[in-house]
């Protein structure tokens, strides 16, 4: 595959892959940088890509593997912050986004889920892949994907209700 071919077949996937990377890494800028590296990796693997029946699925798998490696390399740490102090005294561009309070809560809650659940939610709810496609990308069984999806949806609801006190009456 030459560069022109690559531009037609792989580059259009960039935003989708970026969203997946961002979901896994929980960080916009980190995901941006990662996307550069992932695209270069895909370019270096272009001969494998040629032989692969499903370029999209292959690309998602490469993305997922790269991000998981980054997450593993980052040491596991517990970080506690006092948001009130920081939000009042720092410039926070995120705060000026149009997203409503509720949407921010959802965003926080998803970030709190374990990696696999975040990934499956991203692939299903946002990117709209079928269970079979997801199973293929994650190299696992359809049954397992259903279990992860189920847990993800339930835990997300639970986090919103319990941790963030998502209380209908408040809204």
């Amino acid at each position: 595959m030459e560069l022109e071919d690559f531009k037609i077949k792989v580059i259009p996937l960039k935003n989708k892959l970026f969203r997946i990377a961002k979901r896994l890494l929980n960080d916009y800028e980190l995901a941006e940088d990662a996307m550069q590296e992932i695209m270069i990796k895909l370019w270096e693997k272009r001969f494998e890509l040629d032989k692969h029946p499903n370029i999209e699925a292959f690309s998602v798998t490469v993305t997922k593997n790269y991000c998981i490696d980054i997450l593993r390399a980052k040491k596991v740490s517990t970080i506690e912050i006092n948001e009130e102090i920081l939000e009042n005294r720092m410039d926070n561009p995120d705060n000026s986004f149009e997203k409503s309070e509720l949407q921010m809560l959802v965003s926080k809650a998803i970030a709190y889920l374990p990696e696999m659940q975040r990934l499956v939610l991203q692939l299903r709810e946002i990117e709209g892949y079928s269970i079979e496609e997801i199973a293929f990308m994650l190299d696992t069984s359809i049954g397992n994907v259903r279990v992860i999806l189920s847990r993800a949806r339930l835990q997300l609801k639970s986090i919103l209700i319990n941790k963030y006190k998502f209380n209908y009456e408040r809204y």
């Binding site: 912050i81 948001e83 720092m90 965003s107 970030a111």
Partner: peptide, 14 residues
């Protein structure tokens, strides 16, 4: 600042 909105303390209900 980077971690605003991202992390939290593990709670019992979870």
């Amino acid at each position: 600042n980077e971690h605003i909105g991202k992390l939290s303390i593990i709670e019992e209900s979870f």
